[in-house]
């Protein structure tokens, strides 16, 4: 974000939003945990928006934002809980998804203007997952999402044509019901064949898509290994950041074919410079 002129300030003492676990155990808890975070963010100076880099966290926070505007009775109940920590939620923070900010606030023009090494020739499958699109369709079409495309094209890459961008990765089923989740991810990886990488906007989807590829390939009887990158990493490659800066060593699936193609792309970009 720094490369694109945006400054991020960390919320002090942030806590967990409850993920998908809170909602599966208690409704009030699933609202109180994100409310704690929003109330802490409200206390910060000169901050009116909160950028959320995970779709599940985004939805949890967004739900509470909506309640704080439309349901005073429930907001009061949440504030009764927050009082235990001397916190109070007014409801003035705007909850924004990382992709929303990259696609609409920063925008493709600014990304193009900061381009250092174009990723021409790469074929990218944009993967949105569920919870940044549904149930609140804030910045994209919840059935046929397209918001990532201009951002990817701004760095010179092409879009892999597919209709799996908004499909479910199985989320925490991967641990408790692996048979089901592996099927979902297998369908996504199969549809991505022909692309050089899938780009994600949620760390949970990222993990599900990248961590089980060997198992899924074995199950399906075909090689389904695929590079999975988090959108800011992908953009960072084009904005001249090093693989070390982008912590690509932490990714669980970057294929050799992708590395080779990336090197060729970068060499040819250097020649033409």
């Amino acid at each position: 974000m720094g490369e694109l002129g945006a400054e991020l300030v960390e919320i002090e003492d942030w806590t967990c939003c409850g993920a998908s676990a809170a909602e599966a155990t208690s409704y009030l808890l699933s609202l109180s945990l994100p409310a704690c975070i929003l109330a802490k963010a409200e206390k910060m100076d000169d901050t009116s928006q909160i950028l959320v880099p995970c779709s599940a966290c985004y939805l949890n926070l967004k739900k509470v934002e909506e309640i704080s505007r439309n349901n005073i009775e429930l907001l009061n109940k949440i504030n009764t809980v927050l009082q235990e920590e001397n916190l109070h939620l007014q409801g003035k923070m705007k909850v924004r998804h990382l992709l929303d900010i990259l696609a609409r606030d920063i925008g493709p023009a600014k990304i193009f203007a900061n381009l250092k090494s174009p990723l021409t020739g790469l074929n990218i499958a944009p993967y949105y997952g569920c919870q940044c699109l549904r149930p609140y369709s804030v910045f994209d079409d919840p059935e046929e999402p397209r918001s990532m495309e201009p951002v990817i094209e701004a760095v010179g890459a092409k879009i892999h044509p597919w209709d799996m961008g908004g499909r479910c990765c199985g989320a925490s089923h991967m641990t408790t019901k692996p048979d089901v989740a592996l099927e979902l991810v297998a369908a996504i990886l199969k549809a991505a064949k022909g692309a050089d990488a899938i780009v994600t906007v949620c760390p949970m989807c990222q993990m599900n898509l990248e961590a089980y590829q060997k198992k899924i390939s074995g199950m399906s009887g075909e090689d389904l290994s695929m590079t999975i990158l988090y959108l800011p990493q992908f953009l960072g490659l084009a904005l001249g950041l090093s693989e070390q800066d982008l912590r690509m060593d932490l990714n669980l699936s970057i294929t050799k074919a992708f590395r080779d193609k990336l090197n060729r792309t970068q060499i040819s970009a250097d020649i033409h410079r």
Binding site: T15, A19, A21, A22, A24, L29, L33, S172, T176
Partner: peptide
């Protein structure tokens, strides 16, 4: 049992430390 214990274990860690 399986899902419930999974979710409750997650929440127990969050309860103790604020983050999982």
């Amino acid at each position: 049992k399986k899902s419930v214990r999974f979710y409750k274990s997650f929440m127990e860690s969050v309860r103790r430390h604020g983050r999982v």
